[in-house]
Structure formats: structure tokens, C-alpha cells
Amino acid sequence: MDALQSNRRQFLKLFGAAAVIGGLAPEAFAKPKSTQLTILHTNDVHSRLDPFPMDGSRNAGRGGIVRRATLIEQIRKEQPNVLLFDAGDLFQGTPYFNLYKGEPEVQAMNRMRYDASTIGNHDFDGGMENMVLQFGKAAFPFLIANYDFKNTAMNGRTEPYRIFRKDGLKIGVFGLGIKPEGLIPKELFKETVYVEPVETANAVAAVLRNEKKCDYVICLSHLGYQYNDSTVSDRVLASKTRNIDLIIGGHTHTFLDAPVNVLNQDGLPVLINQVGFAGIYLGRIDLTFEQGKAKVATDSKAVEVKS
């Protein structure tokens, strides 16, 4: 039983409901307001606007924006509070990118009403000027907290984080990109400065949680799910930080059957998810929130993920 409810029950029993409601703030005893949030996400769609061709291969017929659009629209009809994110690598992988340089990818995301995306290494493939041009067509922000674009054409074109408000909920969302050196040709990323992601994440997440009073903090990451060495991955990030609730990952094209929980520096669970690549899957996380502070007892262990 909820300790809060149990206290209230005992209190009411002892003093009488009428006296209490009359003498004290009535909202204290109303059922706490609860609200729902649905987070939808993709990663590494790689210009896969059409489904995979029906050639008998493993992914034949899967993916494609025309069906993803229907699915998202159906979910929006059922759920009042939806946030839709992408974890980077929108670009490169089909001839659409070679011909149109990313325009239909961004326009399609506008039509599906994406709320934010982070930047993947392949989003540099058309060069920085192309990134300015194509990202400029987006109706959603590109969030990246650990790329310093000051001395590049992308200067001022991104935000480290954004706060979304849904039915009283404050959702803080920030982005992290992968180290470009050795992955992206220098001619493409130019003077982009990569800032160490763990420190950056800790600083940004603390601002979102403590200063901005966000109820839930999400990291859109293109770091990759896991590596054999000490390279910063989503798992490393989760374990070495605090104040992050959910990491929506990308880059490693990892198909997770369900989100994975990793304990952070405070011993609190961080949910990590990634849905492969090419828009074969749409990730959906449904969250229920209740107004007020969580009891320590519930906070310190993972809220079960039902899939």
C-alpha cells in the first residue's frame, strides 16, 4: 500500500474527514493527479524512405515512411501526450540521400511531427553546408550538447536541450553525439569540437533536473549501445551519470527486444532503448506519472517494464 494513502487514511480516521477538509488545504487530500506520456522513437533510419524491397531478404517489406506515418497517427489518436524522437543518422544508405541530400528525410519527419532529433555521424555525409541547408528545413530542433559548432557553418543551428511540457509534465531532452575523429572524414566535420559526453551529460542533466525542475530527463544518444573496450557507450553513460531517466540510443544498430535498465551513480535505474535501424521498428514507451514526490522506497528500484 502507498504510504501516503495509508497516512491519510489513519489521519482521516482519527480526526474526521469534515474537520480536516474544512481546516486544511483540500487539494492535499484529493487523489493525486496522474498523467500518461507516450514516447515514440526511431534511430539510424538511414534514408530508408521506402520499405526494403520485396526481394526475399530478411527485412523485405519492412520499414518505410508511409506505414510509420500511419502507426504514429494511430497512436496519436489514442494517446493525448506523445513525444516523438530520433537518435540520429537520418541520412545515408539509400539513393534518396545521394540524389536529394536529405531533404525528403527531414520533410517526412516534419510530416510525422517529430519533436526532436540528435545528430549521427552519417548526418555529416553531405558536408556541413548541406547539414545547415537540410536541417534548416526541419520543424523540430536538433539537440546536441557535446558538439561545439562555433567555428563551423552549423554555429547556432542546434540546441543542447529542450524542455517539452505535456499536461503539466516537464520533460527535459538533450542530445549527445559520437566522437567524429576516425569515424567521419575531417573534410566533413571540419572544426566541430567534440566534448567529452559523460561530463557534458552530467552537467546538462543536472540543469534539467535541478534548475529547470524537469520531471523526466531523456538523452537522445548517438554514442552506441555497448562496446568491448572502454569507449563511451549508452551503458557507460548511464552508469557514470546521474539525473538521466531514459537514453534513446543509436549508432550500433542494436535491436533490443525490450529496454534495458542500468543503475546510475545514485543507484537509480536508467532505461536504455534502441530499435535497430532503417525504421524497421518504432519504439514505444508508455509512462504513467503521479503528481508529487516519489517515496524513496519506489525511487530506488526500477519501475518494472512491461512489454
Binding site: S34, T35, G168, L169, K170, K213, D215, Y216, D245, L271, I285, D286, L287, T288, F289, E290, Q291, G292, K293, A294, T298, D299, V303, E304, V305, K306, S307
Partner: peptide
Amino acid sequence: GYHLTNQS
């Protein structure tokens, strides 16, 4: 503020 009570 709000806190998480359920997730699926």
C-alpha cells in the same frame, strides 16, 4: 512535480 509510477 510528477514521479514515475508505471511504464510499459
